[in-house]
Simulated assay, not measured.
Amino acid sequence: MSTTPTTTEITVAGMTCGHCSAAVSGELSALPGVTAVAVDLHPGEDSPVSITSEAPLDADAVRAAVAEAGYEVR
């Protein structure tokens, strides 16, 4: 039985460079079931982030992962 991937869209505040987006991507990619993370970096502004996963993600876990990278979900 295959599952349909779920996409979660969030906005992250405070990222300014590729290193920032890589840190956020790394933390989010470590969440169980996450198969892809795409960051649309807008330096110094809020940046949209798309997370593809095998099942819906827990919002608190997503916020915690972003916080672990040093940023905040808007």
Score class of each variant (00 low, 15 high):
Gly18Asn: 05
Ser47Glu: 02
Leu41Val: 07
Ala38Lys: 14
Ala23Met: 04
Ser47Gln: 04
Ser47Arg: 06
Glu27Met: 10
Leu41His: 11
Pro43Gln: 03
Thr35Gln: 06
Val39Thr: 08
Ser47Lys: 10
Gly33Ala: 12
Val37Asp: 01
Glu27Val: 02
Ala22Thr: 15
His19Asp: 03
Pro32Gly: 09
Leu41Thr: 01
Val34Thr: 06
Pro48Lys: 00
Gly18Val: 04
Gly33Glu: 08
Val24Asp: 01
Leu28Met: 05
Ala30Lys: 07
Ser21Val: 07
Ala22Ile: 04
Ala23Asn: 03
Val24Gly: 03
His42Leu: 09
Glu27Cys: 02
His19Ser: 15
Ala36His: 11
Asp40Glu: 13
Val34Pro: 10
Ser21Ile: 11
Glu45Trp: 01
Leu31Thr: 04
Asp40Val: 07
Ala36Leu: 13
Asp46His: 04
Val37Ala: 05
Glu45Ser: 04
Val34Ile: 08
Glu27His: 05
Pro48Glu: 02
Pro32Arg: 15
Gly26Lys: 05
Gly44Gln: 13
Ala38Pro: 00
Ser29Ile: 09
Pro43Ser: 09
Pro43Thr: 01
Gly33Asp: 14
Ala30Leu: 02
Gly33Gln: 11
Ala22Pro: 02
His42Thr: 13
Ser29Met: 08
Gly44Phe: 12
Ser25Arg: 10
Ser29Tyr: 00
Ala38His: 06
Val24Ala: 14
Asp40Arg: 05
Val24His: 06
Glu45Gly: 07
Val39Gly: 08
Glu45Tyr: 02
Thr35Leu: 08
Ser29Gly: 15
Val39Glu: 14
Pro32Cys: 12
Pro32Val: 14
Pro43Leu: 08
Ser25Leu: 08
Leu41Ser: 14
Gly33Arg: 12
Val39Phe: 09
Val39Asp: 11
Ser21Ala: 08
Ser29Val: 09
Gly44Arg: 11
His42Ala: 14
Val34Asn: 02
Leu28Tyr: 11
Val24Thr: 09
Ala38Gln: 08
Cys20His: 11
Ala23Tyr: 08
Ala36Arg: 15
Glu27Leu: 00
Val39Arg: 03
Ala38Gly: 04
Ser47Asp: 02
Cys20Asn: 09
Gly33Ile: 06
Ala38Glu: 15
Pro48Thr: 06
Pro43Lys: 00
Asp40Pro: 00
Glu45Arg: 14
Gly33Cys: 06
Ser25Thr: 10
Pro48Arg: 07
His19Gly: 15
Ala38Arg: 12
Gly26Asp: 07
His42Tyr: 00
Gly33Val: 12
Val37Met: 11
Gly18Ala: 15
Leu41Phe: 03
Ala38Val: 14
Gly26Met: 06
Glu45Leu: 12
Leu31His: 07
Pro43Tyr: 03
Ala38Asp: 12
Ala22Ser: 10
